[in-house]
């Protein structure tokens, strides 16, 4: 009985959704409703107004920077939550020495060989994200993935030594601080949040700075998750 009811509900919902979808304009058509309002405005003036030829970046980091700020806060809150529930394993009495598992020589060689290229590509994505596809978050995730790979191959203790603790404390919040600074500076100097200055080079500099901050913040959040899980595994 309940199954039949669920089936009816699903079918009705599917028919309604299909009816809705069939009314949509074809994807990419220039006179679709979504392309005639703010989107046209972004495409016309986005490059000059937001300091980023890549319009995705222009929308993410300027037109809807407040939204991106919220996303940065979510990632940071997730990291804080993971660290707060005590998975990090620091200062919890004598830690059991983790046995180092042998890594396959193939994996070891490939990771060591590819590491500089992956790091270069991540930096390229972060710094060129306002011109080409990509951006701070994507580059940061690639950077974080690289650090996790190095942790898997070289051992998490060596990875932890590569990240100095006192500096880490503040750099984890760098994306949050950079966004707050950009928002506050815009509000103080021009009267609205995330307002950019007149000079084009300064606009570009601020966008690149925000990208860099997002990248570092995302990479450190991912490494934080990984190190927490790793420390937890040996407890």
């Amino acid at each position: 009985m309940r199954n039949a009811l669920a089936l009816v509900v699903v079918i009705v919902l599917a028919v309604l959704m299909m009816a809705g979808v069939s009314q949509l304009p074809p994807p990419g058509s220039p006179d679709g409703a979504v392309h005639r309002h703010v989107a046209a405005h972004y495409i016309d003036g986005g490059k000059e107004a937001a300091g980023a030829p890549n319009l995705v970046t222009a929308v993410l980091l300027n037109y809807r920077a407040l939204d991106t700020y919220g996303e940065v806060v979510v990632i940071f809150a997730a990291l804080i939550a993971v660290l707060a529930v005590g998975l990090a394993g620091h200062s919890r009495g004598p830690q059991r020495q983790p046995e180092e598992l042998p890594v396959s020589p193939v994996v070891d060689l490939v990771v060591r060989l590819m590491a500089p290229f992956i790091a270069l590509f991540a930096l390229f994505m972060i710094l060129e994200g306002h011109v080409l596809p990509g951006g701070g978050f994507q580059g940061g995730v690639v950077l974080g993935a690289l650090m996790i790979l190095l942790g898997l191959v070289l051992g998490p203790r060596r990875l932890r030594r590569m990240l100095p603790t006192p500096a880490l404390f503040w750099t984890r919040a760098v994306a949050l601080l950079a966004f707050a600074l950009a928002a506050g500076a815009g509000l103080a100097l021009a009267g609205w949040l995330f307002a950019l200055p007149e000079q084009p080079w300064l606009r570009e500099l601020i966008i690149v700075g925000l990208e860099l901050a997002i990248g570092i913040g995302a990479a450190l959040a991912l490494v934080g998750f990984y190190l927490s899980l790793e420390a937890d595994r040996h407890r």
């Binding site: 970046t57 596809p133 990509g134 995730v141 990984y226």
Partner: peptide, 17 residues
């Protein structure tokens, strides 16, 4: 842009976690 995020986060990081 979305594809890069999908490849890095969806196919890479979440699998490790």
């Amino acid at each position: 842009d979305v594809a890069m995020t999908e490849a890095a986060v969806g196919a890479g990081i979440t699998a490790v976690l």
